[in-house]
Simulated scan of single mutants.
Amino acid sequence: MEPLGLLLAAGGGRRLGNRPKALLPYRGRPMIEHALGVLRAGGCARVRVVLGAAAAEVLRTAELGDAEVLVNEDWASGMGSSLRLGLTDVDADGVLVGLVDTPGVTPEAVARVLKSGADLAAASYAGERGHPVWIGARYLAEARAGAVGDAGARALLRTHAGELRLVECGDVATPNDVDTPEQFAALSQLHHQGRGELRDKPPG
Rank of each mutant, 00 (worst) to 15 (best):
G136V: 07
M79T: 15
T159C: 03
D66C: 02
P103I: 13
L39Q: 14
V178E: 07
V105K: 04
C44Y: 04
E57M: 04
L140T: 12
G17K: 07
R158E: 14
A185S: 10
L4K: 09
N18A: 13
A76I: 04
A118V: 04
G42T: 10
T180V: 02
L87N: 05
R154E: 15
H131A: 10
R19K: 09
A109L: 09
P132C: 06
F184W: 15
V90E: 03
A35Y: 03
E108F: 02
H192V: 10
G52V: 07
K115M: 11
G104T: 05
L36F: 14
G52T: 08
R60C: 07
L96K: 09
G98C: 08
T88C: 02
P30T: 00
E73K: 11
L4H: 10
M1G: 13
L64S: 08
V105D: 09
Q189T: 13
A155S: 12
R46N: 05
P107F: 05
E33W: 03
L85F: 13
R48T: 14
I32C: 08
Y125P: 04
A161M: 02
G28M: 06
A185L: 03
L156F: 03
R48A: 12
H191Y: 10
D101P: 08
T106K: 06
M31W: 04
G127M: 09
A62G: 06
D74Y: 03
E33S: 05
G136R: 07
V110D: 05
T106W: 06
T174P: 03
L87Q: 04
W134R: 09
A147N: 07
S81P: 01
P103T: 13
W75K: 05
H131L: 15
E197T: 15
G136K: 03
A173F: 10
S124I: 06
D91T: 14
H160R: 15
T180G: 05
L70E: 13
G37P: 02
A161H: 13
K21L: 15
E108N: 03
M1L: 11
